[in-house]
Design a binder for these strands. Structure first.
Length: 156
DNA sequence: GCCAACGTTGGC
DNA sequence: GCCAACGTTGGC
């Protein structure tokens, strides 16, 4: 049974349009153990992803993606010239992992954080909890489905 | 740009 | 192993 996730990205850094253009990408640069553990231990090919724009105006869920390759070492941690270089990581002990994701769709209207907060059905979502700073987090199936429905009925 | 919340680091 | 200092995230 597929699982569901939410991945955060600053659109100025990498947006849903970038993913659409690239068709797929590797989710490199995650340097938080809990986020890494989700990717390494729990994410599987075929899992659904809510693509979230953070630090944006407004922030919110921009579209859907899917996991297309399970966790493998994040090589940016091994490159001293890379912004995400981590001297604690090595070929033998890579520490940091990443998954590959594939583009699925862009919502015709972004579902803003403010809007997400309005639905009591979604109040349990990790991303809506105060001070939630995780960049990779699990999503309940019911929440995922609810958001899919919201995206399909929303019109401006 | 501010600042609250959180994670990490390092001295002890 | 405690905890203060520091860095980062991310909404606003």
């Amino acid at each position: 049974m597929a699982k569901f996730w939410l991945l955060k990205s600053e659109p100025g850094c990498y947006s849903i349009s970038d993913l659409k253009r690239d068709k797929q990408t590797f989710w490199s640069g995650i340097r938080n153990y809990q986020a890494r553990n989700y990717m390494r231990d729990a994410m599987a090919v075929g899992d659904g992803i809510l693509f979230y724009h953070s630090n944006a105006s407004p922030s919110g869920i921009a579209g859907l993606a899917t996991v297309c390759k399970a966790a493998h070492p994040d090589r940016t941690a091994l490159d001293p010239k890379d912004d995400h270089y981590d001297p604690k990581s090595s070929e033998k002990n890579p520490i940091w992992m990443m998954v590959d994701i594939a583009y699925q769709s862009t919502f015709s209207n972004l579902i803003s954080l403010e809007q997400l907060h309005r639905y009591p059905e979604l109040s349990g979502m990790v991303v809506l909890q105060k001070g939630s700073r995780l960049s990779v987090m699990p999503v309940e199936e019911a929440h995922f489905k609810f958001i899919q429905t919201l995206a399909s009925i929303k019109r401006k």
